[in-house]
Design a protein around this nucleic acid. Sequence first.
RNA 1: GCUGGCGUAGCUCAGGGGUAGAGCAGCGGUUUUGUAAACCGCCGGUCGUAGGUUCAAAUCCUAUCGCCAGCUCCA
Length: 653
Amino acid sequence: MAQEITASQKIELTFPDKSIRTFPEGTTGYEVAASISPRLAKDALSITLNQTVQDLSRPINHGGSIKINTWDTEDGKTTFWHSSAHLLAEAVEALYPGVKLGIGPAIEQGFYYDIDFGDTTISVEDLPAIEKKMLELARTKADFTRKEISKSDALAFYTDKNDPYKLELLNELEDGTISFYRQGNFTDLCRGPHIPNTEKVKAIKLLNVAGAYWRGKSDNKQLTRIYGISFPKQKMLDEFLHMLEEAKKRDHKKLGKELSIYMIDPMIGSGLPVWLPNGTVLRRTLEAFLRDEQVNRGYQEVITPHIANLRLYETSGHYPYYADSQYDPMQVDDERYMLKPMNCPHHHRIYAREMHSYRDLPIRLSEFGTVYRYEQSGELNGLSRVRGFTQDDAHIYCTHDQLKDEIKNCIDLTQHVFGVFDMPVDIRLSFRDDNDEKYGGEAEHWDRAQREIREVADELGLDYTIAEGEASFYGPKIDFIIRDAIGRKWQLGTVQLDYVMPERFDLTYMGADNKKHRPVIIHRAPFGSMERFTSILIEHFAGNFPLWLSPKQVAIIPVSDQFNEFAYRYKEQLHERGIRVQVDDRSEQIGLKIREAEKAKIPHMLIIGEREAENQTVSLRKHRKGTIGTFAFDEYLVKLTNEINRKTLPDSN
RNA sequence: GCUGGCGUAGCUCAGGGGUAGAGCAGCGGUUUUGUAAACCGCCGGUCGUAGGUUCAAAUCCUAUCGCCAGCUCCA
């Protein structure tokens, strides 16, 4: 750049570290990356310019914020996977000429492409060949090139190709905004962006095929969706596949059966899980834990029936609005009743039972309330998606002035609860968008509530994201997204504000001004549903529960029959202290008894033989850890109670 | 609900037109055991259910129920 750069030709770019640098107008993202380091230029996949991801090769004509996206960023992965989807389409077109392409986006973990194969059926057995072709194409080191194209040319291209799906997409686009991307011999309608060259894609795995309706509408034609994932290094793919296997091993449906936690029985009904004794211990322990925390925070527990008069849900508006996911009402005497799909209306009626003074608020009503919702049969899945489940529900009735403190209280409870399981919590503030029809209540309440939610989040110093348009009908909410031991994300609890139900149920309190006011309602459920949370907990711990939660806590294993009696004496003492303990008194070899206790994932095994009987000691073996050592029985009792009371995690200490 | 795949012993799975098999579990013995599988024997299934084709069906066809992977939906 020998010539002078005039002010109008310069642009200022702000980097994520807030540093600002000046570049000539028209500099490409690649050049910006190269100006920082050759390594970054090599690793760069795309840039994010003013929140928009774009190609490295596109000239930058305006200043603003810039981020260089490598594999280590979300935007970088998205670019990489989107480009991989194009490789998939290219490979499929090469192997199955005449196919018609739908869409092929990047998703959270990889990418897919929806393809109309005509009369050909594609199964998982066909995937390795496509995979191989993709790699072959990637190794041709083809550049991704972008071309702006007029609508008429684009239409002509796809008319010629006889692709109805692309034509449908094109018809919705405006002239002047249409671009094609090309790599090798493959051209696709695409707004981009893409990685510079296919060579970056080093490892590919096509994972699955599934039917998917064109544009997600069930009256449209079903296309074949091929799912895949790709990586810049083979090692990353190996790790990913290993993680998949690990997830499979942890599958709660498998472990739930092996550990006798729950069953689903067709004669009882699909989607209606039955909690077996082991699962019931687990669930009751979780409930007791949460109940204690809630009592400490001023909640009062209530119990409400499983069916209620239809009028209750007509008042709340849940019927007939959600009729599709509710069981049909049943006739009782002269009235109609319904299986309860929600606990809230019951709680509102409890609130409405008596006059409330502002001095009484907040009132916090909690219930482990079982609800029934009709889910489509294809949705049902183990404990995680069911038709009857128990919410760890509570409704807080408070004044506007109390709202912030109550929200804090809810966030604090949620963080504390998940902290005990060593599950990090990400927070998402779900606000309304401009579509007024989607929401109830008065705009000023919304504005105030959204502002206050954000203030609370800031005051607590939380990291959060804001999702516009994700609010519920009756108010903004805070969603908690937790991460499990193998890094998967789950949306569990929520805190939702509600301005609609107080109106519908005519809920009031008497203010200091001697006038009636509407309370605000907070709906909140940290776990969401006991069933779903249990399924996640099983997978999080891979069935290796911490001692305090484990359905079976201690297995006493006598070395031979002679020590059974002695073992039972220990058992009695543990049992008296509320420990879940059993003696394996079978005439089996000790190796077998240990093996079975290990397989049953019992946290503590006490081996009792001659030495222990003589000295009043126990030989402690911990699940997955092996022999710990020999302790005086009293000493062991202290260790045991500490581990329970501290809710020690299985992999710590 | 839709599309595809799968239902064989309590569990994991083999058998794919000629009338059902293994391992584990269970039961009965023997063994009395020191930190992840002792040995011997026995029991166990109208092959999810209901029709149909066939001389003959676990096997082929149809329907139905259930499970799995997706799609769609989720207060």
